[in-house]
Design a protein around this nucleic acid. Structure first.
Lengths: 348, 348
DNA sequence: CTGACTAACTAAACCGGTCTAGCTATGGCA
DNA sequence: TGCCATAGCTAGACCGGTTTAGTTAGTCAG
């Protein structure tokens, strides 16, 4: 005989299928004595629910979906996704909710997967990343009427939850710090320009620059890859009046930039200060270790998972949520411009 | 009305449910004309199969499972898992097979998840990583009688497929290369000692050392973390007769080691050559870029997914498979011992 | 012209649960 | 004593597909 079903248990315990279902799900309809007997039999027969049968009856799928529209190799490269996955897992595993993961080529394919998984009843909700400026995924999610947690800036509403960190405040804190050190020419290697957070960071830099009266503050868009990070750094450092500090939107780019500086004989932090918008082992283990914005991506993942589970179960407030503003962790890749050693201030 | 069902289509097309099922699944039992009509109606109504209903009938779950028993933060740190995931996805997405991912604390929990997912019909097969020396998961997988692809050395059999790269040959190629450069004292920062590949690498180093008559070849077990990588490197470099070359089992540790060398004023590669057993962006973007074993983990993931799908569909040979032996990519972190510059050989 | 055979299709069982309507026995209360 | 409420349980419909057994009509050979 294959796997035992509730019919088997019912026969064994001398009750009906319905009674078994009541007993196993802890709902009224059976006496405590009968319930105990049924549970014992189920235990003895090593019974497990058949998830498909449950789902067919309209119950939860006990799974949530995460679809990432980036080149497949990206998640292997970006520590961000790994960290996020880890955080998600920490919470989801505890609730025995599985994660359906899929990496697709573009946003159109992503939307198609949302449609399919929703109509196939495969998942109870979605996690949406890489929020775009006019995001075509949001109307689809509204239409599908499944809970979704969107990672990205505060939005005008819709049925979805949003969780975000204050990119603007974060960028301002970086610029304030660099300006306080004496930097007047700051460059910014930004991410993909159609992402909302990219735009917010660019705007924040421009505003801060104006307020502080900086000599120069330029944002260069990239695709987040180490290759573009290196190339853009090389271009910036080749200019006659090169920036004295560069802010990188990802740590992969920052480390690539550090490598380029080394190659070109530009001392870090003596002649060039480097700040990464993303902190991970990467930023810690290179030499010199990078000053970086410590966003706790793991905690972010945990929070996203928690919020999504609450939305699925319709418990909890279901309110948008702002993560704590990331704090700048100062390491050895920043110093006053023109300083010979990390600690000794020279110019103003 | 909610999502359309095949009953709706049947009514609309004026046929029975069965006919619709035949038509939609491309099996005989309906004329071409009727099939075309049914397909049109299904298209018009935007019908999608309900995965739970399908699974209930005993069909595929169209999902495979990957359970990783490591601290949740690990997958965010190890580029290996990200790469593997990417490769898996590339193939799985193409076949519209989802990946059920779960990160658990230990092997016992991992086994429990296998049992649950199998009995709940959640997945059609498993991907097993981190093969251990006497692996308690293998008998369980045999018992569950689901296809599984095991990532790790050639084994004595069982019903599962195995895919592995030749760690031994890889380690030998590294040692041969270092010995040819003139190194006589080589250290090896190994991974977790109960993993099969760790043991194979340690043995290979010992054998090669004996064959080549090296002065010293020591393997130090670690937990793969950057912290232990750094600590062990510091210990090794503090010894009176320190190694002239260190082989690291992961690139995270290698980069951490590189940082320690920098701190301690040990020139790389002048006074210390560094080789990483794992190649990723990480190895490329640090300075100097690391000589590393280029295992194409992405391709490995693709192959694993392909093999698993074949096993699930019972097509294909179902034979164990050896991946191409990884090749050493020589970059700038290795040179003859005592050389001042990367290129100039000095001693012998 | 008839019987055998097959293509095309229908009706209904089935997968393993959930859930509702209904039945029975019991106890409480007037 | 009679009536009703209720706890405890059963029977069976139901979810949305797949699959099998059975029916009908048409083709072909003899």
């Amino acid at each position: 005989m294959g796997r035992p079903t509730i019919a088997d248990i019912a026969r064994q315990a001398g009750v009906s299928k319905g009674a078994v279902s009541f007993a196993l799900n802890g709902r009224p309809g059976v006496s405590e004595a009968t319930r105990a007997r049924i549970l014992r039999v189920a235990e003895d027969m090593n019974w497990r629910p058949h998830s498909a049968a449950r789902a067919l009856g309209g119950a939860r799928a006990d799974a949530v979906g995460l679809v990432i529209a980036r080149p497949a190799r990206t998640i292997g490269v970006e520590p961000f996704f790994g960290q996020l996955l880890s955080g998600l897992q920490a919470v989801l595993s505890a609730s025995s909710v599985a994660l359906h993961l899929m990496v697709v080529e573009d946003t159109a394919a992503e939307i198609e997967v949302y449609r399919r998984w929703a109509s196939e009843h495969r998942v109870d909700g979605f996690i949406v990343v890489d929020l775009q400026v006019k995001d075509p995924r949001l109307p689809v999610l509204d239409e599908l009427a499944l809970p979704a947690v969107v990672l990205g800036g505060p939005g005008k509403g819709g049925g979805r939850l949003r969780i975000w960190a204050d990119d603007r405040a974060a960028m301002l804190s970086i610029v304030d710090y660099l300006a306080a050190l004496g930097h007047r020419r700051i460059a910014h290697l930004a991410g993909l320009p159609h992402f909302q957070h990219t735009q917010r960071r660019i705007r924040a830099l421009r505003d801060a620059s104006r307020r502080l009266g900086l000599e120069e503050a330029v944002s260069v868009p990239t695709d987040f890859s180490d290759a573009e990070g290196a190339a853009a750094t090389r271009t910036l450092l080749s200019r006659p009046r090169r920036p004295t500090a560069i802010v990188y939107d990802s740590d992969v780019m920052a480390v690539a930039g550090l490598g380029v500086a080394g190659e070109m004989g530009v001392a870090v932090p003596g002649e060039l200060s480097i700040v990464s918008f993303d902190d991970s082992v990467l930023a810690r283990i290179v030499h010199p270790p990078l000053t970086a914005l410590s966003r706790d991506t793991f905690a972010l993942g945990e929070q996203v998972a928690r919020s999504l589970l609450e939305a699925v179960e319709e418990t909890g407030p279901g309110r948008d949520l702002q993560m704590p503003t990331p704090r700048l962790t100062v390491r050895e890749s920043t110093s006053p411009p023109g300083a010979a050693a990390p600690a000794g201030p020279t110019g103003g």
